[in-house]
Design a protein around this nucleic acid. Structure first.
Lengths: 131, 131
DNA sequence: CGGGTAGTTTACGTTTACGTAAAGAGAAAG
DNA sequence: CTTTCTCTTTACGTAAACGTAAACTACCCG
């Protein structure tokens, strides 16, 4: 199992530019080791990159993702920190559930639209219905 | 049932600034009627605004939402148009389903994180577990 | 008639998330 | 040694989605 990665390996695997990856580092989301000047990414870095990209797909700003990372890394012994973390989790959960409802709604509408278009095509006698 | 709306009514109902609503018009997403210089929004405009905002929550760019509107409005008799529409629907569906998977994953992780934090708090004897 | 309250246009400013170009370092290949 | 990659830093540029300020209009209130 591979244990370190170069920037181009990661950029190819996740289909992002090296520029983007360096930018995430600039913003404090990644902190790869160095071999001389070259960046060397660990498996932890790779996981983080995956999380960053998933966050992006869900509309998280980089600063939000960074904040979540910091919470994860922060002192888990501090009761105050944990309460704060629970609040953040709660907020995120509500946003995501709203988003899920939005998705269900749009998928439903796409169904309706698709059916109506297919019906229209069928009526035209072109009948490519089972596609 | 109300049949027309002012810009401030809509901005309050959907919690967006009038500036944003005018911007959507600039970008060709809304085309309210006018009474003199004043904008008068119909129920159709209101529905569109709702769709715009839902699109935003899902990470659609305004230009993408506009493109979908144009498809909806376009000549439904044109077979080519309909095929194109079906393709767009398919693309959108795949993106949305990816997004749904992302959401499920994050919600699952939030569950794990929340449980572990609650457990940590319980162990500390502070036991606010049933919150 | 002097204010408020909404609304309008015009235009420049701002943030986020990179793109892109320039210039150089280091290692391998011919 | 020169070429060729890959990677690096530095820095300016850019698109999207508004924010914000200025200056104006129109109407209602007392």
């Amino acid at each position: 199992m591979q244990t370190t990665y170069t920037i181009t390996e990661l950029s190819r695997e996740f289909d992002v530019t090296p520029r983007a990856i360096r930018f995430y580092e600039d913003q404090g989301l990644l902190s790869p080791a160095r071999e001389g000047r070259r960046r060397v990414y660990s498996r932890r870095d790779r996981v983080r990159l995956k999380l960053i990209l998933r966050g992006k797909r869900l509309g998280f700003q980089l600063s939000e993702t960074r904040a979540l990372f910091e919470l994860y890394d922060s002192d888990h012994g501090e009761t105050g920190q944990m309460q704060y973390f629970l609040e953040k989790i709660h907020e995120r959960r509500e946003l995501l559930e709203q988003q899920r409802r939005d998705i269900e709604a749009v998928l439903g509408e796409l169904d309706v639209a698709e059916r109506s278009v297919r019906e229209a095509l069928r009526v035209k006698g072109l009948a490519p219905t089972p596609a």
